[in-house]
Nucleic acid binder design. Structure first.
Lengths: 249, 249
DNA sequence: CGCCAGGTTGATTTCGCTCAAGCAATGTGG
DNA sequence: CCACATTGCTTGAGCGAAATCAACCTGGCG
């Protein structure tokens, strides 16, 4: 049972450059906007800096708009009534968060928490709605993104239903490898995990003690070596082979 | 290990009324269309009748457009490499399916199968894209729908990670109760299940043998009585109480 | 009639959860 | 600088839940 109290949301407010100068200008969903729409975006936005562990928005909170990550990584979690948390998604710079709540008008279903120092822009509800009405491509872009996330979530559901915990861990490691891993020359790789063991455990739907044991067994089998938040993977294909363990024929 | 071969997709083609006369005209996502856009929809659409078990579209198939259910129920499944299937979603009349693939241009990630006699309209890719471009509200409607489905899928993920199989079954029963159940006078209810035990088991992420045992225990505890596809629930609130079993302190 | 698919039940084993202790790193206040 | 609490992780023992393998039942159908 974890403590549900969160670090108070008191990020530093910044009033510097507009969105036209943003590094993510051409890499985010907002790339479909024209120059004057970007100006409109700039005016309806405010940039905030978060420290590790600070809350960008909290579950149950009223939506104030959507959040666009300029730098850093953000964890999207949901808490169950007992206070346990499940890490649903990792978001990185360029990702836009929280538009579900803007669309439905309901409160946030998830919390968003900075995993390290992060800068995030809040784009007010009114501005978002105006921009979507003005440029339908933005809505389409969000639709494409949401559809992709839905497929992702469904794939996870299938895996939770069919794979062993060990296979699920292997899968998560491969995904993290793509995202924040460095590839070696000979099919080897290494990852610096952006999350704690507890979160990693919640991602594969198990307890942290069980995760510990799985890690131990994986090290015994020479699949992956964990030390703090660093993971070394001698042969990446070996992890791939773990994903269908029961297919030994 | 189930057989992956499917009943051939040879639905009866119908060339009767247009979409303006459809019963779902004002209940589906297409309700945002104007009269002449509905005419356009009618011309770009073809209606098909499916028998129980017939495939509307199959996983891996190229997308031909989106599918709008006029009547009947459709199961959305995914198969894993071993041939096991996971039932991801139940769709009913008024629901629109398969637009993810239209948007991404990829092949279908899931299969759709008629659970009983069903009539489904196929709206060709070109028509869909034209209509979305012409009336942005349609895209927004799809976005809202997709966002809702995403929240749904995420909620399921949290439940798979935290709840027991018994609690998950209780939850699924409550959802089915809303969808296809009849409420009694005194807090009782009954459901006619639209799916087999195997599918029900896959919905809660377990084997059908285990489901059988859970059902047995639930009957012992007087929570729900199963007979074929009929379920009788004496007290619906009792099921609700099952969902947080470990909260007894 | 025999066959088959779908469902139930039983026996056995594996796996993961729970509770509990221990340990290292970090922080805090005297 | 040290005693002490806290946090994150690991490890162990015992137990309960679920997977697996297998037999068996039942109703529908050629």
């Amino acid at each position: 049972m974890t403590d549900v109290t969160m670090t108070p949301t008191t990020p530093t407010r910044e009033t510097t450059l507009g969105c036209d100068a943003c590094v993510m200008r051409h890499k985010s969903d907002w790339q479909v906007l024209s120059d004057d729409e970007i100006q409109m975006l700039s005016r309806g936005q405010s940039k905030h800096c978060y420290e590790t562990g600070q809350t960008v928005y909290a579950m149950g909170e009223r939506s104030r708009g959507v959040y666009c990550i300029c730098s850093g990584a953000v964890a999207i979690r949901q808490f169950d009534p007992e206070g346990n948390s499940v890490l649903l998604q990792l978001a990185y710079s360029g990702d836009t968060l929280g538009y579900e709540s803007v669309l439905t008008g309901e409160t946030h279903r998830c919390s968003a928490e900075a995993l390290g120092p992060a800068t995030v822009c809040l784009i007010g509800t009114h501005t978002v709605k105006t921009l979507i009405a003005r440029n339908p491509d933005l809505g389409l872009q969000f639709l494409r993104r949401t559809a992709a996330k839905l497929q992702d979530a469904q794939e996870k559901l299938v895996q939770h239903a069919t794979l062993s915990n060990r296979a699920k861990l292997a899968h998560v490691l491969l995904i993290l490898m793509d995202r924040c891993g460095r590839r070696g020359t000979d099919g080897a790789g290494s990852i610096y995990l952006p999350v704690s063991r507890r979160d990693l455990a919640s991602m594969i739907g198990t307890r942290h003690e069980t995760l510990s044991r799985i890690i131990g067994r994986m090290e015994n089998d020479g699949l992956a070596y964990f030390s703090g938040r660093s993971v070394d993977i001698p042969r990446i294909e070996a992890l791939l082979g773990e994903i269908r363990p029961q297919l030994v024929g």
